[in-house]
Every structure is written in C-alpha cells, then in structure tokens.
Design a protein around this nucleic acid. Sequence first.
DNA 1: AGTGACTGAGTGGATGAGCCACTGAACCAG
DNA 2: CTGGTTCAGTGGCTCATCCACTCAGTCACT
Lengths: 228, 228
Amino acid sequence: MEALPRETIVDVLESRLREDILAGRHPAGSYLPPERQLAQGYGVTRTTLKHAFGRLAQAGLLETRHGVGTRVRDFARLGGADLLPMLVRHDARWVREVFEVRRSIGALIAERAAVRGTVRQRAELTALLGAVREAASPDAVQLADVEVHRALARATGNRVYVLLTNTLFNAYLPVRAALRGPFTDAEAAHRRLAPVVEAVGAGDCEGAKAAADAYLRDTERIMLEGLS
Amino acid sequence: MEALPRETIVDVLESRLREDILAGRHPAGSYLPPERQLAQGYGVTRTTLKHAFGRLAQAGLLETRHGVGTRVRDFARLGGADLLPMLVRHDARWVREVFEVRRSIGALIAERAAVRGTVRQRAELTALLGAVREAASPDAVQLADVEVHRALARATGNRVYVLLTNTLFNAYLPVRAALRGPFTDAEAAHRRLAPVVEAVGAGDCEGAKAAADAYLRDTERIMLEGLS
DNA sequence: AGTGACTGAGTGGATGAGCCACTGAACCAG
DNA sequence: CTGGTTCAGTGGCTCATCCACTCAGTCACT
C-alpha cells in the first residue's frame, strides 16, 4: 500500500499562507504583518510560523529580511518551475499550459533519446513499456506510464531533462486522479505508447519525435475531454 | 548597488548539510542521525537544525517522518529542476547540460513567441534589446540579456515557459561571474541577439527558431571557452 | 503456534519565554 | 545640511519542555 499522509500544523499553516498569497490576498511586493502578530492571528507559535515561512521562502514565494520584515515575492515574474505543483493545485487552468510545454519537450526528449540512448537504456524502455500493459489498475497504468517517460529522459544522457521531466510530473501527479482517462484501458495505453519506444529503440530520431508528439497529443486530448 | 548578503546560521547549516548530501556523505535512502544528535554535532539547537531541515525537505532533498527519522531522498532520480542551482554550484559539469537544454528550449520559445507574441510584447522586446546595447558594464549587459529572454518567454503566452526559463536562469545566474565572456562587449552582444528579436518581431517562426539556436550556440561557445 | 493488546524507547512535532542582531526613522549636535 | 546617536520594531536564534508518532519487543490469551 501507500505510505503517507501526515498533516502537521506546519503543513496546514503553509498551505493556508500559500493560498492567501496565490489568491492575491497578500499582493506581490507587499509586506506581511510582523511574525509575532501573524502567529497570534493564526493561533500558532512564532516558531511554528517561522517553519512555514522557511518553506515558502525556499519555494520562492517569500523573502525575509532581518530587521525589516517578510515580503511577498513577485513569483509570477521571477518564480521557477518548482512553483508549478502549487500553482496547478490552486488553479486548474495551468494544466493546459503544462501540457503544451510537456508536448514540446517530450518530443525533444524522444528525439535525443533516439540519438543517444544506450543499448541498456533501450532494453529498460522496452521492459517498462511491458509493465504498462501488465499493470493491474488504471492508477498503476498511469504510474507505469510515468516511469517510461522518466526512462526516456534518462536515455537522453542529459540529466537536466530528467529534472525537467520530474518537475512537470510533480505538477501533474498531485491532480492525476482527475486525469485518468487515457489509462483506464492498459492495452490501449500500451498501444499508444509503443510507437515511441520502438522508434527510440530503432534510433529513428525523426520518427521518435513524431511518435512522441502524437502520443502526447492523443493523451492530452483524452485527459482534457474527461476534464471538460 | 546590490542588496544582499546576510548569512544566518541556518543558511550556513543548510549549505553544509546540502554539501554533505550532494557529495554523497549521506547516501540516498539512508537515514540521517537523530535531530538531537546531529544538532549537537553541528553545535546548534535542534530548533535551528529543524529550520535547515525544513528548507532541504522543501527542496526535495530530505524526507522526514514523525517518529521514524529523516531520510535522504533519491533526488537524482526523483528531484525537480529547482535542484539545479545547488547542483550547478556543487559541480560545474552541470553547466554544460544546462546549456544544451537551454538551447533546445530557447529555440522552442523563440518559435512560439514569433507565432503568438502580441504587438505590445514585440515592442517590449525591441526596447529590452536596446537596453542591452546601452548597458554600462558587462554585468549589466548580462542582466539585460536575461531580461530579453524573460520577455521572449512571456511572449509565448504560456506561463510555464516563463517558469522554466526562470529555473534555468536560477541555475546559471549564481555562477554567472565565471561566464561573462559574451557580455564584455555590449555592441557585440546586441549584434548577436538582434536577429532573434527581429525574427520574432516579424512573426517569422522558422527564422526565429534558427536565430535563437544560432544565438544560444554562439553564446554557449564563448562562455565555455572562457571556462576552458 | 498464533493472535492481538500493551508497553517503552527512540524519534520528530510544537510550544513559549527570552535574548540577540539588524534596520530605519527620528532626533540631535556640529 | 551633514553625520552621528538613539530607540522602537522587526526577524534570528536558543533553550527547556512537553506532545505525538512509530516500531519492536513482550506477554497474556486463544
């Protein structure tokens, strides 16, 4: 089974603050109330509040200066891709934009993987593709599918592609339950994905690019019509 | 002048821990020593240590479970692009991989911007390009150059491209002093970048892609030869 | 034997009082 | 007007203490 969900006070406080910020209740550039006051307002200790602040600062949402205060960063302008998970959770319209980028980058990755993938990596791809067909539940199919894409990214030989892929998946996985359309039928999912793996396996760079683009376009369509 | 450098204990402790993790002194999957023991080892309070832990957990390097312990995540496999800045700082070999990806994605962005950029955005690009030529110091040229690329990302109409661009810049800007080669001559920098802005302004999608690729290739070459 | 409740050691989570360090503005002396 | 001083307000950090969770071992009961 799954491990997981513990909700500590800091977790809750962090989400609460994040929501307040993303919803614009604390505009970019504005200063938050002093820690002592804010902590009292939320009914927590200053220490606890600071833990939440620390995380949000690390995420790029806040910026604190000793002796001055804590201010909301202009994350829409300067923020990095690690904000995506929280942005997607906060506003589903981001999903479409994520998909568009995912499609372009997915095609790039398939192309590179076809050129650079090692024999070992191609074999791994085939094995992981098989796992998609064998997966028992739609959820498992979805996760198996993700693993194939991670392996594709690794096969580019460029670790930055792996990180980017993870970033995009991190944005997508938390809301994946709503996007399960393409994975209800393991056989069909396997059929859609297979051409990509085959083209990469054959070292067919143009073919891999086209197959990846087609795969991502199909999957995206099915996901979004389920969302409507 | 710049604002900046405060080094709090938590900052130092965080870097120290991060180094220890990235260098593999705490292998992925292994548990860190208990907080009380570790805090004593570093000569700080447990509270302070926990602040540092919080940041690293947010960054995806650690994973804490109540009653069990704190464990090092397999960030190389599962980490997101937000790790890039620390990875680059820790090992310069990442820079080359970042550049390769930057080149591919930069071409994508230019292509989209040519198709989708609004009149207003094209005008902004021209203005920002002008600022590159006018910049007084190499450092200013470099930052003006970055602003042009941010604007290009905005012109795609897809906010995810903006975030990705920021992520890649976040990886690059902390070490930018070592990569100033292309920006010592403002006039030359302007000359290299101009074709991209022009093609985007003209709505020439193929041309923009080619120009961006050429620009990024040139810049990258100059940077890396300065690096040896 | 097998089952299930109980217990205790070890872990992280949270608190609140207290002090230190920094910033900026107001003030004041030159 | 300039430059130093003061002070109120802010975040940084520590400490001592308690709470909550996990896990493995125990032990009585079946």
